[in-house]
Amino acid sequence: MDAALLLLADSRLPAGGHAHSGGAEQAVRAGAITGTEDLARFLRGRLATTGLVTAALSAAACHLAVLLGSHGEDGGRPWTEPSAAAAAESETDARAAWRELDAEADARTASPAQRYAARTQGRLLLRSGRRIWPSPVLDTLAQAVPDGVHHPIALGAVAAAAGCSRHDAAMAAAYTSITGPATAAVRLLGLDPVVVHRVLAGLVPDLSGVARTATAAASGTVEAGVAARGTAAEAVLRIAWEELPAHAAPALDLLAEQHLRTEVRLFVS
């Protein structure tokens, strides 16, 4: 684990994450979460579905950022030619690769409310991340998806810029997929924060498992893509992102849409 992971996963990172409850606020309103036992079930399900998908997307984005960032540092391969034309072409390819991964996140997010929340959070994280860990790869990502990239993709790219590994990126995504809703539930229901942290501690084995599974899925996907193609520039455009996990959480979709239609809200999502 890289120490930068602690900064990245810290709720005090100024990237707007505290404004989102990940469906917890609506679940509380609907009576689906009334105490710590319901909350534990909510978080376990969220981690096994959205948590796994976002962790895999984050690991994939981290991997992609490292591949794209290796331009010019990896002499001897054809795509590292330093000519202006080649640089422009590789920049175009890099943007296309980011948009492809972003489209995979879209295809895994059926709910418009959830897509909106993911893009809002992604835009804020990328904005902060570019100032904290400046990197040409993050600039390319921001230009590729100017309206805001899905949050896990921003997270993975920023993780790469911060020097974190794919596994770190997956862990950060999995972790924030449950800590945000847990904190929100403390505020909404006035739960004992220590008891809620005990719930989170109980989910540590699940967190590790999800991060491991997500990293393996992302690595396998990228490595198969690279191995099958001649150059990284070609490879990043043809990575079989479809093989990444796509676990759906129909109740979260419903909660997200109901939440958007609720007038008095403490959280954005």
Binding site: I33, F42, R44, A48, T49, T50, E104, A107, A110, H247
Partner: peptide, 18 residues
Amino acid sequence: LRQEFVVGDPAVDASPAV
């Protein structure tokens, strides 16, 4: 659209999130 549904893990099935 890409979606997976997993059924059969009681801890996840009964989750208010799933």
